[in-house]
Design a protein around this nucleic acid. Sequence first.
DNA 1: AGTTTGACCCGGACGC
DNA 2: TGCGTCCGGGTCAAAC
Length: 269
Amino acid sequence: MPELPEVQTVLDTLELRIKDREIKDIKILYKPIIVGDPKQFRKRLLGQHFRDFKRRGKYLLFEMDDLTLVSHLRMEGKYFTVDETVPLSKHDHVIFYLDDGTQLRYNDVRKFGRMELIEKDDEYRDFKDLGPEPFSNEFSVRYCREYLKNKKLPIKQVLLDQSFVAGIGNIYADEILFAIRTDPRTRACELDDEQLKDLISQTRKILKKAIKAGGTTIRSYTSSLGVTGRFQLSLNVHTMKQCPICHGPIRKITVGGRGTYYCEKCQKG
DNA sequence: AGTTTGACCCGGACGC
DNA sequence: TGCGTCCGGGTCAAAC
């Protein structure tokens, strides 16, 4: 599932491919992807150019001339830039016809992804409940301490809560907790300042490394986008069988309804 | 009022 | 082959 690093990678790559391209036409093959009226969506985007590529949490923001296209990939949303002669794939749902004869295609097996137009510089309504960016100064020990002080939920579950910090999903939550040697079930309010400091720095370190890995991988692809690059990312616990530190078994449990991998020897308290 | 839980959207993967 | 079940990001409603 695309998390912050994958979203950033997709954005960076799309910027290289379609920056300043004009939208000549749009075909929407599966309407629920579009939030709001699909006809208006198409109409308003005709003649617009992809000018800037920004990210907020896991949201992609395509800044056009007069408006912003907000896109969320949810589980398996992918973008491809292809020549118009390439046949449609099974799960292509939205086709953008560009002025250089190429197409930007949105493909989504689960159909969970969403696109929505917002007025330029408008604060997107979904963003009001979105927590700070992991790389921002706002994501500080003081902020975490305050946010978590009454939270009795498992720390893993809070890491997945986008209103705490934006952009972390199931895979990186597991990796971060492994990196700070903390049991994913630990109550969030029980982390002390030292652990919070560690949490913040490891979060940034892991996300940065992932962005770097994703970017490297993506560049080796010439005809398609949306390959997230995760397969090249080295994971320590998520979907792993053996702990890279103690070589003991990695356990899989359910925390907050999500599959969770951890090492019971290395991750205590 | 604030916090927490669970259903929902969807289809591929997997198990029996 | 053919079912049934599981999974998951974010939203929303319901329950605590």
